[in-house]
Nucleic acid binder design. Structure first.
Lengths: 219, 219
DNA sequence: ATAGCAAGCAAACACTTGTTCTGTCAAGCG
DNA sequence: CGCTTGACAGAACAAGTGTTTGCTTGCTAT
């Protein structure tokens, strides 16, 4: 049984194991680490599959040298707290009315990461931050336009006037709007004079994050 | 002889060697790698100094495990296709009418550098890019608000409709406006319905850059 | 069936590599 | 002067680790 990328299940497991091991320890695993932790009966089987992984370019090895495995695309970098941005996962697109996959359901590991300028916040502040690409013009009066990337901090509550990603449970829709709690009801206000607000109840609303930054590329 | 950080010369050499080795190979060096490449006579000397480096927190080790050295602050990260952001100098503030120091006169080296997401352009495209912080609301209709950081590519010409930093020679003023070349005259148009355009001649105008990106932090 | 082959198994082997033990040497100190 | 301590040397040892070899399996094409 093979998966779509042409690797056997075992090879894929090994590859993932190496990746995880590297992330965790910052040095590569030994063949016997792989063998034991994946429950493989013999080191030669691991060696055999590593050879194939190398032929396919998934890993590269420094022959004979212990733990001489590395994964192309993974590099050891000095993280300089002061001058570096941080990366946040780009989880998709948002349009008024279009469904957005639940961030927690998404494999954040696999999501494309985008770099965020340090000016937009410290590492602390950027915890639980993700990015969405905006489609449409419903927030132009809030200076958010089509094609902009919005940075969102995941939170389930908001203050009046904040711009939030709101999920309407019944409609199963997700939308980017300004949030106003008005007595018993919630008003979701587009920042565009030509558009009407949406009214709903707290029951029907799940806030999925609040806008903390905007990034735009001008061509 | 010790250096300012309390490490002996040899310890510092070892530390640097480990760092370099990691960058180069993406896996840690063995004690004998260190020994040979630094011309140290015995593995025990290396082990001795490694112990000290660990006590001082400069490295961390996974005892007994071969090549189990890592440097706190260096982490193995998946570099996504978007690789890294780039830094551009933050040269100051811009408001309609306020003077802007000539970018070439500024010591770019000394300017505060801000990090730019790779999404805003490749290294190639970001050549000659600088940043300014926007004061005022003259460009709100172009989705640029007070406090936004605009990224500008230095260029002396522009196409109609592009947002540029324009210096009015006679007035000795600098302003962020949309650029329109209309026959013999130039129209500098604020993106704000409540504000009037400025008309001038090509002689009196020096374009100092064009907006290529916007970064906003929302509190 | 039978040969071929990918994949796996088990054990033995040899090289790597960290550790430890025993000294040496110079500097600081009462 | 004898003692201690930091730094280093050399060598032997014990794990740690990659490789190799020979032997199954199970499947597929001939």
């Amino acid at each position: 049984m093979r998966s779509s990328n042409g690797l056997s299940v075992r090879q894929e497991k090994i590859l993932n194991y190496i990746r995880d091991f590297l992330k965790k320890n910052n040095y590569p695993p030994a063949i016997r680490d792989i063998q034991n932790d994946l429950g493989i009966s013999s080191t030669s089987v691991v060696a055999y599959n590593l050879r194939i992984l190398e032929e396919k370019g998934k890993i590269s090895r420094d022959g004979k040298i212990s733990r001489g495995i590395s994964i192309p695309g993974m590099t050891l970098d000095q993280t300089v707290v002061t001058s570096h941005g941080f990366t946040v996962p780009m989880l998709g697109m948002i349009t008024a009315g279009s469904p957005l996959p639940n961030p927690e359901a998404i494999n954040v590991e696999d999501a494309e990461q985008i770099e965020v300028p340090a000016e937009l916040g410290s590492a602390e502040k950027l915890r639980d931050v993700y990015a969405l690409k905006v489609r449409g013009y419903s927030m132009v009066d809030a200076l958010i336009g089509d094609g902009d990337i919005v940075l969102l901090r995941y939170q389930e509550t908001a203050d009046n006037g904040q711009t939030v990603v709101a999920r309407l449970v019944d409609e199963n829709a997700v939308t980017l709007k300004k949030f106003y709690h008005e007595g018993e009801r919630i008003r979701l206000q587009p920042a565009n004079v030509t558009m009407e607000p949406i009214f709903t109840t707290p029951d029907n609303l799940h806030i999925q994050g609040r806008v903390v930054g905007v990034i735009r590329s001008v061509e």
